[in-house]
Design a protein around this nucleic acid. Structure first.
Length: 315
DNA sequence: GTTCCCCTGCGG
DNA sequence: CCGCAGGGGAAC
């Protein structure tokens, strides 16, 4: 799921809800989401009494700045998404955690949505079934991290740990940052690789993923396999402008909700209704009617119009 | 560069 | 049963 527009939408949504609330506790029963496995047991006591002072983003990383000057970081990977709920904690089910798993502060229990009595509409909306991490605030509101595939990651950084964390990952400029100029893009494209693979490379530009890469290249009329070093200045300019326009459109649409992604309030984004090529294999190109083609680039499904987006420059 | 892996669910 | 899915890291 989440690419820059989804993460940005999440940030904007959460700023309105979680900033300033005092944390009563936190809980997770999914060891995979922590790089530091100790957090599985200690995250509750670590966060208790703290509060989130601001929410930010770098590429696809979500940044929760804490009053204690520490930072809670999150990456939603494929199916992760944050939900903010003020509804009462759901009723307990038989899948109650064992004694050893019960955290000192608060617990979010797994809801049994199977069987004839599959969860109520509300339970389905908040995706309780796949909650991997949760924070409970003193006023009863909760921040839930739902993630079917458990690829998402959460980190708790000490004061000052942020620079080291991002230096290690060598992220390029954020695609929506003023620093991500056309000139910067041109400098990054000097590496001689398929343009699509470079757009997906977070050390080149941070924030673009599979959907917005395909959409941007369609908009710019550039073939995804074009070698980046062969791109002319005008082509780079058009890619740069397309990235900006597409990401902006994605943000305005509240992101893409194809399967798992939702805004923190549970509502859907609508960029899926605006896309031109992503997962539109066989459908007519909006510009020329040619059937959209699917190939694999950088191990990812890639969708493009074989007529509008040519590899060779013949006209 | 590729290939495999981490996971779970869904649709053909 | 199979392939596929908004991501990314490790190993060859």
């Amino acid at each position: 799921m989440p690419e820059l527009p989804e993460v940005e939408t999440t940030v904007r949504n959460l700023r309105k809800s979680i900033v300033g609330r005092r944390i009563k506790g936190a809980f997770s029963d999914t060891p995979q989401i922590f790089e530091d496995k100790r957090l599985l047991r200690t995250i509750g006591s670590e966060l208790k009494g703290d509060s989130i002072t601001s929410v930010d983003r770098h590429g696809k990383y979500l940044i929760f700045n804490l009053k204690s000057s520490r930072i809670l970081l999150a990456h939603m990977k494929m199916t992760g998404h944050f939900l903010f709920v003020t509804t009462p904690r759901p009723k307990l089910t038989k899948s109650k955690p064992t004694e050893s798993q019960i955290p000192p502060v608060s617990i979010v229990y797994t809801i049994d949505t199977g069987g004839a009595n599959a969860g109520t509409v509300n339970e389905r909306e908040v995706g309780e079934r796949f909650v991997r991490f949760s924070i409970e605030f003193f006023d009863g509101a909760r921040l839930l991290f739902s993630d079917v595939r458990k690829f998402g990651r959460i980190w708790l950084l000490d004061n000052g740990g942020r620079a080291e964390f991002f230096a290690k990952r060598k992220l390029g400029h954020d695609a929506m940052s003023p620093k991500c100029t056309e000139k910067y893009l041109a400098s990054q494209l000097k590496r001689n690789r398929a343009i699509k693979s470079l757009l997906l490379d977070q050390t080149c530009i941070a924030g673009i993923g599979n959907i917005y890469a395909d959409e941007s290249l369609w908009q710019a009329k550039i073939h995804p396999m074009r070698k980046s070093s062969s791109l002319k200045e005008a082509e780079i300019r058009s890619i740069w402008a397309a990235i900006r326009a597409i990401l902006k459109k994605g943000i305005r649409a509240g992101g893409t909700s194809i399967r798992d992604y939702r805004k923190p309030d549970g509502s859907l984004g609508y960029f899926q209704t605006l896309r031109a090529v992503y997962q539109k294999t066989g459908e007519p190109c909006r510009r020329c009617g040619t059937k959209i083609k699917r190939i694999v680039v950088a191990q990812r499904s890639t969708h493009f119009c074989p007529k509008c987006q040519r590899l060779t420059i013949n006209k």
